[in-house]
Design a protein around this nucleic acid. Structure first.
Lengths: 315, 315
DNA sequence: GCAACACAATACCTTGAAGGTATGGAGGTT
DNA sequence: AACCTCCATACCTTCAAGGTATTGTGTTGC
């Protein structure tokens, strides 16, 4: 049996006349007669009674008509769903984020994608950079968000945003009195660094910037992520350099101050990481969203807009 | 798209290798390659990624695999159900019964059929003989139970059972004292007759029998059906001749007495009526059941068995 | 009652697509 | 570098779907 048989059967059942049904199907009458005979023979069931006025469904034929219509609609839905899946509009996207990645820009990006592709189920996984690379290689995730990415042969990156660096300072700290701080002012103040883990990382960036400013930072503590770092600032462990998205985290007693006279490289990239060989349409659509979002973000947040922001985390 | 495409797709998806899938399908590799390409092209969706190790499903392919398996099982179920319908094992049977037909043998027959063909839905309609004939012609019913059927050109009959005639008597009536009665004893006693309606009917039969016994009955009342007739006997309207199946109806004050020295034609047929041109397998199977039932009934209830029965309706 | 009609079935031919054989080409392995 | 394992392509064969012409069988209309 064939989908053609079903199409023909439905036409004959509806027209109750082989000639008219053949016209509707744009074929001639004899082949249609044969196809119907074939179908009946294959099922071993008489579907029609032949009358001088045409073809009349038997009871078994009535039942088969319902079934045939049902099959047709199931097939239609299947192709339609598969096509949407092929266009990246239906399916599942496994994304890795890092510890404090849930702050700032990523949620807005995910929301934008979810709005554009409501039938794609986004599954979030919290992973370190090394875990992300491993999971991408094993195809357990499709994409990871990270910072400070060294080029890798089989993985590609897409820049999501570049963020300004801020200093997280305890409100009782002398530097908290400044509207903004400069790099040399950070010398001599004990500093919390993050994250521990695979190099190169944010710590290397901070060390290099301090070096360029002519001093070696006093490291009071190294921690795993930005959230812990800011918590230690709240606890009086020292100051901590953080990307601006961390200001989404409000902890009592912590204020954030911008860095003035910053060198041009005193910004930190947020990128996403994916398999260079991944052709999946959902990934393609997601990267498209990332690019659009990045463009809008750069355009919308032109130089100076950050001065509007209140850096104090408040209570 | 074709059911063949689905079969081939499932094989390739399961084997993850065109060569092995082709072997499983008993075709060679190149046509299978082409069929898969065709399917992808028709859907406009890449279902597989070609790797050096074989064929790997894309996300859209995974979804289509589920859909394809689903379609396959829907098609299988449809053919299976249609085949059962074609064998008369699945479907609907519209049967007409007459007023008091629900008494006696018909329920047992219906129960036997229902047990043998549990998936055939029996729908009962109460109709007079004339209504049955009309409904059969319009195909609103497939079969009707009736008595006293005159042969009709387009309708066929099948004998279900022949029943003895009994006399329903009010317990205070003089005849109630007899163990059994003979036809001449009925003369002079007012008699209730049924049914009014299309001739020939049971009334004609009773009139003829009385005539053969040498008297003309005193008709006290004509009513529509046996139930009403027996109710009038209970009310003292007179005696009433009924087929034995009416004894299933117990009314206070009514006793039933057999007729002894009855002529051989003093029995009444219960037949079923159906379209002579009806080829429906369900009807065929039902008639088969009727014949088996009739045979067993005749064999099981050999002469004399009725003497065991208590004719008093009791309270 | 005969002719005309309407419908499905049959006979025979044509064509297109599925299937087969042989071979190419790309990526990985020994 | 040679070989192996895949899938893809080229080209041929065959079978079945589709077309045309015709038959056969009931029904309708004059």
């Amino acid at each position: 049996m064939d989908l053609r048989h079903l199409r023909y059967f439905i036409a004959v059942a509806e027209e109750e006349n082989i000639g008219r049904a053949a016209a509707r199907l744009h074929i001639s009458q004899p082949p249609l007669t044969r196809q119907i005979q074939q179908l009946e023979e294959e099922l071993g069931v008489r579907l029609f009674t032949r009358t001088p006025r045409g073809m009349e469904l038997t009871q078994a034929g009535e039942l088969f008509l319902e079934e045939a219509r049902n099959i047709r609609s199931v097939v239609e839905q299947a192709t339609e769903r598969t096509q949407r899946a092929g266009q990246g509009k239906l399916g599942r996207l496994d994304i890795a984020i890092f510890g404090s990645g849930i702050l700032g820009i990523i949620p807005r990006l995910l929301l934008a994608f979810r709005t554009a592709y409501p039938e794609v189920k986004i599954v979030l996984h919290t992973m370190t950079k090394a875990e992300q690379i491993e999971a991408l290689r094993q195809r357990r995730i499709t994409l990871g968000f990270n910072r400070m990415l060294a080029p890798l042969p089989d993985l590609a990156t897409e820049l999501v945003a570049t963020e300004q660096l801020l200093v997280a300072i305890n409100e009782s700290h002398p530097l908290a009195r400044e509207e903004s701080v400069s790099f040399p002012m950070l010398a001599e103040h004990p500093m919390v660094l993050f994250p521990t883990g695979a190099r190169p990382n944010f710590i290397d960036k901070v060390m290099r910037l301090c070096e360029e400013a002519g001093f070696v930072p006093q490291v009071s503590q190294e921690v795993g992520d930005a959230v812990t770092g800011v918590a230690l600032v709240a606890g009086g462990f020292g100051i901590c350099l953080v990307p601006e998205s961390v200001t989404a985290l409000t902890l009592p007693g912590v204020v954030f101050r911008p860095l003035h006279d910053t060198p041009p490289n005193c910004r930190i990239d947020l990128s996403c990481l994916y398999r260079a060989d991944d052709q999946s349409p959902i990934l393609t659509e997601f990267l498209e969203t990332v690019r659009a979002f990045h463009g809008a973000h750069v355009a919308g947040h032109s130089p100076g807009i950050q001065t509007e922001t209140v850096w104090d985390a408040g209570i």
